[in-house]
């Protein structure tokens, strides 16, 4: 089940790309970061890293779109990148949720530009922003529902309460909970079990040992999707959480790609 006979472990130990199954990174970023300097924000470096690892596709949003009040400037970075690498990079549109009149125009622009998902971000640090409970989100969920767009939601445990009413109200909108298990793990597990439209995304810098195994033991092998948070973190490193997990190769295939294919509606994009 694990170790010497596991092709994922063998390839990882040889530094070879994971090229025998679909690998989708559901959580990435481009652009500069406000709090510390990213070493290389060029999409070329991201795609080169994907090639070394064997990642087929990466869904990205722009860090500059997330933090300020100029989402469209950030989205433009992603727009350029997805046109430059149309088979490898896919875009999440980010909206300035604090400005309700901009939400639909930004999403419409994203739709025209070929973005295939939406990224939402809760307040962080001491910068005020609407919570996930804000009614400003209503047109965003409506848009996602009508246009069949998945939503990647930044979470750190406490936001799940505000997300739950939207998850119930929009059962046809797939919602990926980023940073599963960063806090309040039991709640993530409950959401993953209870809601067919919820998927649990993995990236987390502490990379806790035994965590992927725990989610599989909890019966969530079909609901976990792998994400790296590159370029904010490193995909080369985060992939090891799944490759070396003591789970079956079949479950690794699900977590590395098959679940994301479902969650991100890739059959239709």
């Amino acid at each position: 089940m694990t170790g010497e006979n596991d092709l994922f472990v063998q390839k990882a130990l040889a530094g070879q790309p994971i090229d025998h199954c679909l690998v989708i990174d559901a959580h990435g970023h481009l652009g500069e970061n406000p709090t510390f300097p990213i070493i290389d924000t060029d999409p070329a470096s991201v795609v080169a890293s994907m090639d070394r690892i064997g990642i087929d596709a990466l869904w990205v949003s722009a860090l500059p779109a997330i933090y300020g009040g100029y989402a469209e400037r950030g989205n433009a970075i992603v727009e350029t990148a997805i046109h430059r690498y149309p088979q490898r990079l896919f875009g999440y549109t980010v909206v300035d949720i604090g400005y309700p009149d901009r939400v639909i125009p930004t999403l419409e622009h994203g739709q025209r530009a070929g973005f295939t998902g939406i990224k939402i971000y809760s307040p962080i640090g001491n910068v005020p922003a609407p919570t996930y409970a804000s009614p400003n989100y209503e047109p965003l969920y409506n848009f996602a529902d009508v246009h069949h767009l998945p939503i990647l939601a930044h979470t750190w445990g406490s936001e799940l309460d505000d997300l739950e009413p939207w998850i119930k109200r929009y059962p046809n909108v797939n919602i990926l909970l980023a940073h599963t298990g960063s806090a309040q793990l039991e709640k993530y597990i409950r959401f993953g079990r209870e809601y067919p439209n919820v998927f649990l995304e993995l990236c987390y810098s502490l990379s806790p040992r035994g965590f992927v195994e725990l989610l599989v033991r909890e019966g969530l092998a079909d609901k976990v999707v792998w994400g790296s948070d590159t370029v904010f973190m490193s995909a080369t490193q985060q992939i090891g959480r799944v490759l070396f997990a003591k789970i079956s190769p079949e479950d690794k295939e699900k977590i590395l790609g098959l679940n994301a294919k479902r969650a991100l509606y890739t059959e239709t994009t």
Partner: peptide, 11 residues
């Protein structure tokens, strides 16, 4: 999970 250091280095 120590495997992340291995992939971080080898990839």
């Amino acid at each position: 999970e120590g495997g992340v250091s291995i992939t971080g280095l080898l990839y």
